[in-house]
């Protein structure tokens, strides 16, 4: 039997529900969102920061955002802009030596599902960033019109990037043979 405390108001109950639904959302999607950004940027810390900031804003406006058709679309879109702005800021402040740029070497052909994911992330980072974003979202099952709206591009662009990305990935897969 559930005992409802008399002090719990409707507003507080609503808040608790929001908290619970946000936490479920967060737990289910934080990993795929991070993975999406990692296909665009090799700096893990930067990616985590962008995701966390996005989710904090999402939590703040969860009442509104949870009512969206697909709240995850908003998270993908916002996290990507956060990352891009963060990257731009880092480039402006970058004083690190120009000398050392570790080359993101391709590993041998993947043997298990985890290696396959790593391989994919590494290959995506070798593509132009927009192509990588389109391809990663398509893999997650988003439709072309959804991708165009999340990434803010023309419908025709999604189609054209998807096939360009696929072509290049195919080449990379064959190189790794």
């Amino acid at each position: 039997m559930t005992v409802v405390e008399p002090s719990v108001t409707a507003a507080e109950q609503r808040l608790a529900e929001l908290d619970a639904s946000f936490e479920d959302f967060c737990r289910d999607h934080i990993v795929p969102v991070e993975r999406f950004l990692r296909g665009l940027c090799g700096d893990r810390e930067l990616v985590q920061e962008a995701v966390q900031e996005t989710l904090i804003t999402a939590r703040d406006k969860w009442e509104q955002i949870s009512g969206y058709e697909k709240p995850l679309a908003w998270v993908y879109k916002t996290a990507r802009y956060k990352l891009m702005n963060e990257q731009a800021r880092q480039r402006r402040e970058a004083t690190t030596a120009l000398d050392e740029v570790p080359s993101d070497r391709l590993a041998a052909p993947p043997a298990d599902s985890r290696e396959a994911q790593d391989w994919l992330l590494r290959c995506l980072r070798r593509l132009p960033a927009r192509q990588a974003a389109v391809f990663a979202l398509a893999l997650e099952g988003w439709t072309d019109p959804e991708i165009a709206r999340i990434l803010g591009m023309a419908d025709n662009t999604v189609r054209s990037y998807k096939s360009a990305a696929r072509r290049r990935l195919k080449e990379l897969a064959e190189e790794g043979r």
Partner: peptide, 30 residues
């Protein structure tokens, strides 16, 4: 290797115990 094989392999990936724990931790942190 064939791209589609790699993609299929990657899609089969299920979150590991570690990834699930990390997702919970990050959620609490947020």
């Amino acid at each position: 290797m064939n791209l589609d094989d790699i993609l299929a392999l990657a899609a089969r990936h299920k979150p590991t115990v570690f990834e699930r724990a990390s997702a919970s931790r990050n959620t609490r942190w947020v």
